[in-house]
Amino acid sequence: MIRDILLIAGKDLRIEGRSRIGVAQVLPFALLVLLLFAFALDPDRGVLQAATPGLFWVTVLFASVLALQRNFGIEAEDGIIDALRLSGIAPASIYLGKVLALIVQLAALELVLVAAVAVFYNTDFHGVPLLVAIAAATTVGIAATGSIYGALAARLRSRDTILPLLILPLLAPVLISATRGSEVALRGEAGTGWSWAALLGLFAGAYLVVGAVLFSPLLEDA
């Protein structure tokens, strides 16, 4: 099973390594959004600094939607989903492989965005262990839910509009928790922040299980 998961994840990452859609399109888009927030919220009045955690995670969410569309768009074309089913790999392994590939891509995206926020928004980083825990749990949560809905939407003609409508309300508690937790961490008071990280971990864990269970009917019938 581990081998199958790594195989699927490796396949997705190789496709990304060769096509560079993520690096050439999703990442520049995310940086652009960070700039747009600076234009919308005057950087001189401190609004930008105060809102940094929220803006960071909203940017991650928007970029995730694009990354999802890309990661599952490649399966939808040329009947690849049927080919995957024919490969004999268990649906749960396919799901976890897609999740893993997304986690790697989102983590890379977040690293670049952190550097961008540090430069453009002049952020001082405190409570780094808590920030890392929150980022890890959030990334797994986005990948876990995104892979369910990404696969569901991939074969629909209206996938570009239906995916954000499905995924963004689902991620509302993730945005709330990641933003509040990061605010607490940046203020340097780790204490209450860990309960946000725990809630994010619960979300990620719950949806990993849901996704592994639901991927079989999803691949076969949806």
Binding site: I148, L170, P173, L199, L202, A206, Y207
Partner: peptide, 17 residues
């Protein structure tokens, strides 16, 4: 699938909010 994914989120949304 959407119905099941959505209902799992209800308690989490409650807690977060």
């Amino acid at each position: 699938i959407v119905g099941l994914v959505a209902v799992v989120n209800i308690p989490i949304v409650h807690k977060a909010v």
